[in-house]
Amino acid sequence: MTPFTIVTAPACPLGLENVDTDQLIPARFMQTPRSQGYGGFLLHDLRRKDAGEMRKDFALNDARYAQAQIMIARTNFGCGSSREAAVYVLADAGYRCVLAPSFGDIFASNSVQNGVLPARVSAADIEILLSDPSVLAGAPITVDLAEQTVSVGNKSIAFQIRADWKQRLINGWDAVDMTRSYAKDIDAFVTKDRAERPWSQPRG
């Protein structure tokens, strides 16, 4: 996994609240092998009109944010289905970070697994970012994970992230390797647990 330290890039001021993972990627695209790339499915139906042409009033379709690596959204981003493909679409479209006041739990966890930073920014600060002229103009902003700050011009905004997720993102740690380093603890747990909860094994 690519470590996440500092990202400086334009941000896409999406601004929507309750963006569920069915919007991030509609279910019908999920049979696609990952090797084919998921970037084109990002917010596929939401960014288009019924007839299929791109909506001009949709931030994701705005040329100013074509190189964006940071998404700015309102509350409860990534709620709903556990589909990790909702992160694949962001990662494959070049996004490294989402700024929002809150996230769907499973989405946030999936993001960290894929090196995408789910940074919690207060609702008031999200409003500041969404109305900042330089953000809207597509000027680069900087997300610094070690410092837990978003810098826009001379403004610095703090964000929250779980301590363990921060470590994992900064180091680009692989969870499986980390877990395997605890093999002795796992064996000891299994032995003790078998005596304490004999009913936990499926019969048959």
């Binding site: 556990s82 589909r83 990790e84 493909a85 992160v87 499973i106 989405f107 966890s109 999936n110 697994q113 894929n114 779980r162 363990d164 969870a175 499986v176 980390m178 877990t179 395997r180 605890y182 796992i186």
Partner: peptide
Amino acid sequence: AFGIGASEVAHVLMTQCIWQS
């Protein structure tokens, strides 16, 4: 009981454990 993503599915398949806060 809780839902997990694909990378966590892989992790549980390989280790029968999961990291949680």
